[in-house]
Design a protein around this nucleic acid. Structure first.
Lengths: 134, 134
DNA sequence: CCTAAAATATACTCAGCTGGTATAGTTTCG
DNA sequence: CGAAACTATACCAGCTGAGTATATTTTAGG
């Protein structure tokens, strides 16, 4: 019932880039050093953020990463979904076939969890990275 | 980022017991049949619900399980915590030592997640099993 | 008091996921 | 051309999740 380590690193990488000038390219080693993230692991995570349009990159000498959008346009939810995919409180909320009772639409538990999940997703989408730069 | 299968089964077992007379003992096989839960797995889960004071049991002939409290006094949170233990959105919210940056208290991400976690926990504690018996 | 019905305790298994590492390749600046 | 940087892919060890197996204890009732 928690976000995984990759997502946590993702949060920190994005927040670090948010503090840097969006015009400059920051290389993986610098992010790794400042945020204490294993560099090879970071290098594996970054492409997910790029595919989601959160970060952009440039290869080669003087390459690196930078935010692709303004910090206020990147939510916690964006980063989670970029790295872990969609959020589900219960797997029956992802696919009804997961319910061994084959009863999901009529299930009161299902409905209550769906409700709470909606609120959770809404809250995560409300928090953006500009708010986290004091 | 989801509750596990054991907890899902736990929800269903509790809801099933809520529909039965609280005076009668319902045996594991009956719950297993009605809720489509592997019986040996169910038998392993039940003690967690008992330790949490949600369910009571009697062994031997004509034994079984029954709710230990009224359905309106059992929340979704109660069942989740009974089976999975406490809820954390991020492991740094369980123990600061998980933060590789050793920065949790000052971390803005940490704060935002703690906030959202509190709301999630509150919502889960608001939903009780009486509300799920239409 | 014996037997069958029931829960309990404990240990085991097996697959898939998590977190991380390794290797080889491609792009870019100077 | 060569070094600096990202990309793609594959690999691996340990852990967790989901479920099974075995032996034990408790209880009602004949």
């Amino acid at each position: 019932m928690d976000i995984n380590q990759a997502t946590d690193y993702g949060f920190r990488a994005v927040l670090y880039l948010a503090h840097r000038d969006s015009q400059e390219w920051v290389d993986a080693q610098t992010i790794s050093d400042h945020e204490v993230i294993p560099i090879r692991f970071l290098l594996k995570i970054m492409p997910s953020l790029i595919k989601a349009g959160i970060v952009k990159s440039r290869r080669g000498v003087r390459g690196g990463y930078a935010l692709a959008r303004q910090p206020q346009d990147i939510s916690l939810l964006d980063v989670i979904q970029a790295i872990e995919g969609p959020i589900y409180l219960n797997r029956c909320l992802a696919d009804v076939a997961y319910c061994s009772k084959r009863n999901a639409p009529a299930c009161e538990i299902h409905r209550a969890l769906a409700d709470i999940q909606d609120q959770l997703v809404l809250e995560l989408s409300r928090r953006n990275f500009a708010q986290m730069m004091p």
